[in-house]
Amino acid sequence: MAKRIYCGNLSFGTTEEVLKGAFESFGEVISVKIITDRETQKSKGFGFVEMSDDDKAFEAIRAMNGKDLEGRKIRVSVAEERERNPRVNRDRRL
């Protein structure tokens, strides 16, 4: 089963390729997604890495949490599934 990892405090210039490269030394990286603002498409400073092996993912979390990546000390932890709310009345700003 794949393990999803949260990566926070990323530099706004960090690319998905850079983030993937930082985690590949620990094991197979299935996917990488840096979260961006819908309107500006600029990074929000966090993202997710999905690794194929749970043990390798935990090793990566222990090793990468607090490490410097592109000038920032990143926060790395197991990603928690969040409950999604339906988009009810989302456009009330009119």
Rank of each mutant, 00 (worst) to 15 (best):
M1G: 13
M1P: 02
A2L: 00
A2G: 01
K3Y: 02
K3H: 08
R4I: 03
I5D: 10
I5G: 12
Y6E: 04
Y6C: 08
C7L: 02
C7M: 04
G8V: 05
G8T: 00
N9H: 04
L10I: 13
S11C: 14
F12N: 13
T14N: 03
T14Q: 03
T14C: 15
T14V: 13
T15V: 08
E16L: 01
E17Q: 14
E17V: 12
V18H: 08
L19S: 04
L19Y: 02
K20Y: 01
G21A: 13
G21M: 10
A22L: 10
A22S: 10
A22D: 07
A22I: 08
A22G: 03
E24L: 11
E24C: 11
S25K: 13
S25D: 05
G27T: 04
E28H: 04
E28W: 01
V29F: 08
V29A: 08
V29C: 09
V29Q: 10
I30S: 09
I30E: 15
I30M: 12
S31N: 10
I34V: 13
I35Y: 05
R38S: 07
R38V: 03
R38P: 00
R38K: 14
E39H: 05
E39P: 00
E39V: 03
T40Q: 04
Q41G: 01
Q41K: 10
Q41W: 03
K44C: 00
K44M: 08
G45Y: 01
F46Q: 00
F46N: 05
G47C: 07
G47H: 04
F48A: 07
F48D: 05
V49I: 11
V49N: 01
E50H: 06
E50W: 00
E50S: 06
M51C: 06
M51G: 06
M51N: 05
M51V: 03
S52H: 07
D53E: 11
D54W: 06
D55P: 02
D55A: 15
K56V: 11
A57D: 15
A57Q: 14
E59V: 00
I61M: 13
A63Y: 02
A63I: 08
M64S: 13
G66A: 07
G66H: 02
G66W: 05
L69A: 08
E70R: 11
E70S: 05
K73I: 04
K73W: 01
R75A: 03
V76T: 11
S77K: 14
V78L: 12
V78P: 06
V78K: 06
A79I: 08
A79T: 11
E80K: 15
E81F: 11
R82W: 08
R84Y: 02
N85S: 09
N85A: 12
V88D: 13
V88A: 11
R90A: 12
D91T: 15
D91F: 15
R92I: 09
R92A: 12
R93D: 14
R93E: 11
L94C: 09
L94D: 12
L94P: 06
